[in-house]
Simulated scan of single mutants.
Amino acid sequence: MVLTFVNGTTTSSVAPYAGADVPGLLLATSFGASLYFMTRKNVKLGKATIITLGGLVAGAVVGSAVENWLQVDIVPFLGIHSPAAVVSEFILFSQFLVSLYLR
């Protein structure tokens, strides 16, 4: 989550869309880590995948709603200039909660 925050705050104002906006590697790693930790809790892989996908979708929906309300591309919030960083933060947080509390 810290890396996503740093990525969102260090977006260049000269070329804001020059690089990859969404830290896909971090999201993929969180998805894999969530699957790993859920299977370590003796959850079947199919059920763990469905629960993890549900957490991913829930985080994306909540993150999109919050970003739509904050409009960080117009007025930066806590130094975050990238809308994708806000959505990614909520996705990572939901993946964290899913891997900790659901089974």
Rank of each mutant, 00 (worst) to 15 (best):
V61H: 04
G63W: 04
V66F: 04
L45R: 14
K47V: 13
G8Q: 10
L27C: 03
A18V: 08
P76T: 00
E89Q: 15
F96D: 02
K44Y: 05
A28F: 14
S34T: 15
V22D: 02
V62F: 13
G79C: 07
A84W: 06
T11F: 05
L56D: 02
T10S: 08
S12N: 13
V57D: 00
G8I: 12
F90I: 06
R103C: 05
D73I: 00
V75S: 12
M1R: 13
K41Q: 15
V87L: 06
L97A: 09
R103W: 09
V2D: 07
D21L: 15
S88P: 08
T11P: 00
S12Y: 03
P16H: 05
V6H: 08
Q71E: 11
G8K: 11
N68D: 03
G32Q: 04
L35G: 04
S99L: 15
D73W: 04
H81F: 04
G55E: 05
V61N: 06
G24I: 09
K47D: 04
L53T: 08
F93Q: 07
T4A: 13
S30K: 04
S88Y: 05
F5C: 08
K41P: 04
A85E: 02
L56E: 03
K47Q: 11
Q71N: 13
G8R: 13
Y17L: 13
E67G: 02
L53Q: 01
T9S: 10
F77G: 02
T49F: 14
G79S: 03
F31I: 07
V86W: 00
S13D: 03
L35Y: 01
T10E: 09
P16W: 02
R103Q: 11
M1H: 10
A48K: 09
T49V: 14
I91P: 04
G55S: 01
F93N: 08
H81M: 04
L53G: 00
P76A: 00
K44N: 11
V75Y: 01
T52R: 08
M1N: 12
V2N: 11
G54K: 06
A65L: 13
L27R: 10
S34E: 01
S99F: 14
L25Q: 12
K44E: 10
L70S: 02
L102K: 12
F90H: 00
G19K: 15
L3E: 09
A65I: 09
G54L: 06
S13A: 11
